[in-house]
Write a protein that binds this DNA or RNA. Structure first.
Lengths: 129, 129
DNA sequence: TTAACTGCAAATCTTTTGCACAATC
DNA sequence: GATTGTGCAAAAGATTTGCAGTTAA
């Protein structure tokens, strides 16, 4: 494991901020100014493949990266895109028994309108749409 | 609703093939040769926003589009990317009670290795990795 | 007529890749 | 010394957008 790869892993795994590649790159640059964005992408892909990081794909957003172990799902605001971790017990087993297949992993995203956005919407164009 | 929008909706909603924008565009062109790819993208976005289509986002793949009603989730092969519909009862309610939030929708993707790929892998480099 | 929508092409954004060089075993 | 990884820059792929022209209420 190279210095670059370790740095990328440290930043991505030790943040709860669901960072994307660009953000990880900017943080990595502080530690290692010569690191290239391509290197960050390359290592993120490798780390995901090795099972050391989890990739979160949300439509219209760049991929985000999350630590593994401590399995959790994501609650996403339809309005502002903010992400919150949630814990749901027994999902993997539920899917295994629903499908009868040897399911390796499950990724679940739930959508809602967060409190902030609910407040906003109430104060603006209630008549719109 | 314009002819173009209706055509896009018809193609996307009446196929079980989880088509992406490009594929929908090609099918639409047969019916309406002058239609533009940009128009397809624009209408897909509108139709998703209006709740008439569902968007399926999978890392590394272009977005796919699916009909609504008949709620189902997706089982995806890690190896070849093939998609299969699965039905899992009570997911939305489970997430609602797990979060205590007014969850609007849930999108769940489960990953496995499909039978075809299992067969392939068995016959090739069993010692690799 | 006027507002909304289209086709087209260029732009944008994210991610990947080729290549020469550097680091590591 | 060979292999593997890096930095850089260019390319690729998906999607969006500006604009002038078209369509349709």
């Amino acid at each position: 494991m190279t210095k670059q790869k370790k740095l990328v892993l440290d930043i991505a795994a030790n943040s709860n901020a669901h960072l994307n590649a660009e953000e990880i790159f900017l943080l990595a640059k502080k530690e290692m100014p010569a690191i290239a964005l391509g290197t960050v992408y390359r290592n993120l892909n490798i780390l995901v493949e090795e099972g050391l990081l989890r990739r979160i794909s949300i439509a219209g957003q760049p991929d985000r990266f999350d630590h593994v172990g401590d399995e959790h799902e994501h609650l996403i605001c339809r309005q502002c895109g903010k992400l919150r971790d949630i814990r749901v017990d027994g999902i993997l087993d539920k899917i295994k028994s629903a499908t009868g297949e040897d399911v390796l992993s499950v990724s679940l995203s739930a959508y809602y309108i967060c409190a902030d956005c609910r407040r906003c919407l109430r104060h603006t164009d209630m008549t719109a749409n």
